[in-house]
C-alpha cells in the first residue's frame, strides 16, 4: 500500500506560525489498512506543551477509539511511535507541536517502507527477521581475572548501542524504500550499525566481513546519509558504521599486505560467510528445535 505524503512536505516552513495553547488544530491522519485508505481530518484544541503523540492519543480517546497507533515509553527511549509527520520521518513522542506550522493541516502517516497493517501501524517484521541473521557476539575465552576493556575502546560500540530500533533509518533507506525486492538481500542501516558494533567490539572474535559483503548486502548502500539524518539518537550511521564496514571489507579482499600477512605470517584467514552463518539465531532455530513454530515472519513472529 503506497501512501502519498508528497502533498505536504513542509519541513522548514516559510511561515513561522506554530501551535499554541487553545488554538484549533487540524490533523490529517492516514486511516486504512492493506486494502486502501485515506487521510481523515480531525479538529481539536491545542494544549500546553504537547507532542504529536499526545494529540494522536486525544483523538483516539475522544473521537476515534479504534485508531491504531504503536507507542510505549513516550520519552524517546523505546522507538515504537515512528511515523511520517508532514512527510518527515520522526518519533511522534519527541516531536513537539510547537515546532510544527499550523497554517496548514498537520499530516501524520505511517512509515512508507513497511506494509500498512492498520492506520499508523505497519508490519515491521522484516527487521525482526533480519535480526535472526546477525551472527551473534562471540567473545574469546574469559581470563581468570575477568574481561578488561578501556572506556575509550567501548565508546565506539556504545554509540551504536544507543539504537532504540525505531526503524526510521530502515524507512528512509532508498535501497528498500523504493525497491521492495531488495529486502531479500539487504539488511539495512539498523543492522549495519549492529554489525559494525560487533566488528568493533573489543572482545569479539568472529570475522563477519565476508558475511557482511555476501549476505547482508552492504554494497548496495550508496552513502546518501538519509539514515543518519533521521536517527533520533544521533548515531553517525553512515560515517561511523557503514563506511568503516565497507572499508574493512575492501581491505580484506584487496589489501596485498593482508594477503601477504596470511601467506607468510600464518595470520588467521578470513572466515567464510558459511562459517559465520552458523552463529545466527536463524541457524539455532533451524536445528530441529521448536518444530511447530515456523511462522515465516508473517504477522507477529
Amino acid at each position: 500500500m503506497a501512501i502519498d505524503t508528497a502533498s505536504s512536505t513542509s519541513g522548514s516552513p516559510a511561515s513561522t506560525e506554530t501551535a499554541s495553547t487553545g488554538q484549533e488544530l487540524r490533523i490529517r491522519l492516514w486511516r486504512g489498512d492493506e486494502h486502501g485508505g485515506d487521510f481523515v481530518e480531525y479538529r481539536l484544541q491545542a494544549q500546553e506543551g504537547e507532542v504529536v503523540l499526545d494529540v494522536v492519543h486525544r483523538i483516539q480517546a475522544d473521537q476515534a477509539p479504534d485508531l491504531a497507533v504503536r507507542w510505549n515509553c513516550k520519552a524517546g527511549k523505546c522507538g515504537s511511535c515512528s511515523a511520517e509527520i508532514n512527510g518527515r520521518p520522526r518519533l511522534m513522542c519527541m516531536t513537539r507541536m510547537s515546532t510544527l506550522p499550523t497554517d496548514e493541516p498537520i499530516t501524520i502517516s505511517p512509515m512508507r517502507t513497511f506494509p500498512v497493517m492498520r492506520d499508523l501501524v505497519t508490519d515491521v517484521s522484516f527487521n525482526f527477521e533480519v535480526a535472526k541473521l546477525i551472527p551473534s557476539f562471540t567473545p574469546g575465552p574469559k581470563p581468570p581475572e575477568g574481561y578488561r576493556m578501556q572506556q575509550v575502546d567501548v565508546e565506539r560500540g556504545q554509540e551504536f548501542r544507543k539504537c532504540i530500533e525505531c526503524f526510521l533509518c530502515q524507512n528512509v533507506c532508498h535501497v528498500i524504500r523504493d525497491h521492495e525486492d531488495n529486502k531479500v538481500h539487504y539488511a539495512g542501516p539498523r543492522f549495519f550499525v549492529r554489525l559494525a558494533e560487533l566488528e568493533m567490539h573489543p572482545l569479539d572474535t568472529l570475522d563477519r566481513r565476508a558475511y557482511v559483503r555476501e549476505r547482508m548486502g552492504v554494497g548496495y548502500c550508496n552513502i546518501t546519509k538519509c539514515c543518519t539524518e533521521v536517527c533520533p539518537e544521533d548515531i553517525h550511521i553512515t560515517d561511523n558504521a557503514i563506511i568503516p564496514l565497507k572499508e574493512r571489507i575492501v581491505d580484506s579482499r584487496y589489501d596485498p599486505v593482508a594477503w601477504l600477512g596470511r601467506k607468510i605470517l600464518g595470520r588467521p584467514s578470513p572466515m567464510s560467510a558459511e562459517q559465520v552463518a552458523a552463529h545466527t539465531g536463524a541457524a539455532a532455530a533451524g536445528q530441529g528445535r521448536a518444530a511447530g513454530s515456523d511462522r515465516d515472519g508473517a504477522g507477529p513472529g
Binding site: 552463529h279 533451524g286 511462522r295
Partner: peptide, 21 residues
C-alpha cells in the same frame, strides 16, 4: 535498561527462542 534489554534480546534471538509479538 536499554543495554540490558538489548543484550538479553540479542542473546535470546541468537539461541533461537520463538517470539510471539
Amino acid at each position: 535498561g536499554l543495554e540490558l534489554i538489548r543484550t538479553t534480546q540479542q542473546r535470546a534471538v541468537s539461541l533461537g527462542v520463538d517470539v510471539y509479538m
